[in-house]
Structure formats: structure tokens, C-alpha cells
Amino acid sequence: MRLRDELARCGSGMSLLLAVAWLAALAPSLPLGLSLGASVAAWPGGELTLGEPGGVLLLEALRSSARELAVAARLGPAWLCAAALVTVVPQGALAAQLAWPIRLPLLLALATATRRLPSLLAIAAAHLLSRVALVAAAVFFATMTTIVTSSRAGELVVFAIFAVVAAAIACALRLVADVAVVRALRADVGAGDALLDALGALSLRAFSEVLGAAALGAVTFGGAVWLAHEIGARTPAEAAVSATLRAGSLAALVAARAVALGVAARSAT
């Protein structure tokens, strides 16, 4: 059975899992975003921003966020476990389905993934690391572009370079994790066409990460520079355009991944 068929076969189950995972990840992100924004949301538009010289308001925002998220912070380990589960289990299920020569219902795939717990735990660590790095890069860049309201294009270039480098490092970690998946599977069930297909697909997917990160960086960076030069001060219109650009960059990221996965599937047939 070729990879394309496998992807099609397990697609619906994976979609469900990813939807749950997305919501689970969004849950802690939302209050963080809201509480960070609350400190400046009360101030008149364009009057003060988190990037005010001296950092008084920035630290105030972090302080109030910490206060408001105290409960969430105490649940940090729980969130971490949940994040591990929602990120690793789909990966394990996908890998198991790709590698198993017979059709497996979703629950069985999960059980199969669980059966290879030691391998999966090692993989989980690598995956988490790569994802944390990616998220850190994204959050850093997003925060910087939110904070910076001047027309200092040079500073934005520095942010963009940082974001792209961080994303590249994250992608490299991701590639290592993917290779670890394949090796673990190879050790368990032996080499086969499906495994080779999986290796090719995963490598291409890692490549897609780079493409996606570049798309994210380029679109957001371009938008931020344009905003800085064309609008200057922080205004509601600027915020709206910034939001649109960020949504656009996300769409570009998703599209780049979809294209890469499509290429991977085609190459595997």
C-alpha cells in the first residue's frame, strides 16, 4: 500500500485528532494573549504601547499577565503533559498506520502507538523541543512586531532574521525527530516500502517547515515594514492590517505545508 492511500485512509481520524489538539493548544494561548493585551487595550489607541521606552508598560503587562494566569501557571506541568499527548499521539498514530501493513481503526492505531511507549517517549521529547522552539520563534516575532511601533526598519530586520534562524533550528530538530520515528519503526517492524515512503515524506515535510517558516517570516516581516513606514503610529487601522497580515501569513504557512505534503504523497506513489 502506497503512502498516498495511507494518508487518505487515516486522514479523517487525523483531522479529528488535530482539531482537538488545536483547541487544546489554543486554550492556554487565549488567556495569555488576552491578558498581555489587556494592559494596553485600556490605553487610548496610539497613545501607549508595550514597546514604550524604558519598558515600564511591558513589565506591567507581564506582571499582570502573571497575576491573571497564576492558576494556569500552577497547572503548567498538566498543560505540558496535555501538549505532549496531543502532539505525540497523533504522530504515533500516523506513524503506526503508515508502518502497519493492515488497516487499523483509529483506536487500534492509538493502542499500537502506546505499545511502543519507550520509543515514543524519546520521540516526544524531540518533538516537544522542536515545537517549543517553533512557538518561541513565532511568539517572539509576533510580540516584537506588536511592540515595535516606530519606523525603525533595521530593528525589524533583526527580528526577522532571529525568527527565521529560530525556525530553521526548530525545523532541524523536527527533522531529527522524524528520523527518530522512522528508525524506531524500522527497529520494530523492519524496513519496507512504506517505511521508505514515510522517510521521504517526513523529510519533505521537514523541508516544508522551512518553507513555511520562510513564508511566515517574509509575509509578516514585509507587512511589518510596510506598516512601520506607511502608518507609523499604532492606530486601530494599523492593528487591523496587522491582524490581516498575520492571518495571511498563517494561511501561507499552512498552504506551504499542504503543498509539501502533496509533493511527498505524489513522490511516494
Binding site: 493548544a25 489554543l26 494561548s29 515545537r131 512557538v135 513565532a138 511568539v139 511566515l216 501569513s249 499552512v254
Partner: peptide, 11 residues
């Protein structure tokens, strides 16, 4: 959208 970006990259 920032939160969305983080969540998407995470998952």
C-alpha cells in the same frame, strides 16, 4: 491571531 499562530505551530 498571535495566539492562533502559536497554536497552529504547536499542533
Amino acid at each position: 491571531t498571535h495566539a492562533g499562530a502559536a497554536a497552529t505551530l504547536l499542533t
